[in-house]
Design a protein around this nucleic acid. Structure first.
Lengths: 226, 226
DNA sequence: ACACGAAAACTTGCATACTAGTCAACAAGA
DNA sequence: TCTTGTTGACTAGTATGCAAGTTTTCGTGT
């Protein structure tokens, strides 16, 4: 999303955006929470202006809901928005792995293998935080391997919508193991230039969220819109 | 991009955004053109504030390049940005047509057929403008038919980057005929629930831009960055 | 004529004040 | 008790002024 050309210096808006983004995705700010430009400005020690611009960016990511002359709230979960975000993310990532499988670029093979090793270690240590970080990086590596770093920005933007929801679900060791096996199968498919297998495995991988999201919908209906 | 929930009233920012968007995509404002918040504010009769917010939105779409304390310019064409935009658009639309083919929804069949008829008429009348509009609508119909209206918003956002470039290329009757045949084949693949054929045809369809973009790169290098 | 430097004229980022609209609380009346 | 109307405390949208930095201009010195 950011300019790819100039080394934009970090502005107040950037700082506020980053901080709020982390708080929202980390569920530090729960869906439905009212959040006012004035209050945030005071707490950050800036004026309303940069806060306002950060709000606009977050609203574009569907993380805030700006209601003119009423209030701005942390956007509640929406099954529609989540479905859309997942569809787009899947579409992009599927094309990424097909590309990566068909036009092999061995430059990232070592990184992919290292990531898998790291994931195994995280599972052994039952370190869900580390696993989550490695998972993030793994999917980024897939994009790099396909020569489409930009694709990951799009994926990340859509992931955010789902990630904050999944914060509500504990990741078990078994779940991590399953995800790891998907990753491993995906890498093997890439190395074997088997685009069809990569497609199939990634679809299954991304669909594993279905029951999790459904479960959260029933247990945390209050965080959903309406 | 806009909120899907409330009927947001149209703000000054919206008006300025829409107008500038049309001017940029319509090449009324050429790539590289300097454009200042103050000047635009004066010409619209608003203050700098709404102009500034419209600028931010356009910059997010990679249509403006805001260079702090220097100037804001209409973003020059970038082969990287165009490649990225096309990749993302293709990824999403491919998944759209695969979905539309596999889980048929006949509700839009009549609209699709009507669009094809309209396209034939536009070609007969050599009306490129009408054809372009119908083409836009056709791809929107594909998304609707797949039950993914949101996907078209993403496609449109990425299309803008390419559309303004293609304004530099005249559309011949033969070219329109080729595009029509793609559309027709695509619809037949959908009706026949042949996801593989739909995938193949759409890839070919989207790749037809390759030589056009290359040609424009050589004939209008001045509009490209660096 | 040319190189150089200072200043003026720009630019966007940020701060602050004002406007118009929404909502909630509360008092008055039935 | 319940309904209703008014008031005041919020909200975001907009206008404007200042700060910091870049670019251009133009005059000066060689």
């Amino acid at each position: 999303m950011a300019s790819t050309e100039t080394v934009d210096r970090i502005t107040s808006t950037d700082r506020i955006f980053d901080e709020l983004f982390a708080r929202i995705v980390g569920l530090d700010l729960l869906p439905g929470t009212k959040i006012s430009e004035t209050d945030v400005a005071k707490s950050f020690g800036y004026s309303r202006q940069p806060v306002r611009e950060a709000f606009t960016r977050l609203a574009n990511l569907n993380l805030l809901l700006i209601r003119p002359q009423r209030a701005t709230i942390v956007r509640p979960f929406s099954r529609d928005l989540i479905a859309n975000a997942r569809f787009v993310r899947a579409a992009i990532e599927l094309e990424v792995v097909r590309t990566a499988a068909q036009s092999r670029n061995v430059a990232f093979d070592a990184d992919l293998k290292a990531s898998l090793r790291g994931q195994r270690d995280a599972i052994a240590a039952e370190d869900t935080k580390a696993f989550h970080d490695l998972d993030y990086d793994f999917h980024r590596l897939l994009c790099l391997s396909a020569g489409r770093p930009f694709a990951f920005e799009m994926i990340a933007a859509n992931k955010a919508q789902v990630d904050r929801l999944c914060m509500l679900s504990l990741t078990s060791t078994e779940a991590m193991q399953t995800l790891y096996e998907d990753h491993d199968g995906l890498v093997q498919a890439l190395f074997g230039q088997d685009a069809e297998a990569a497609d199939r495995i990634l679809r299954q991988h991304l669909n594993r969220l279905d029951p999790i999201i459904d479960a959260i919908y029933t247990t945390h209906k209050g965080y959903f819109e309406e």
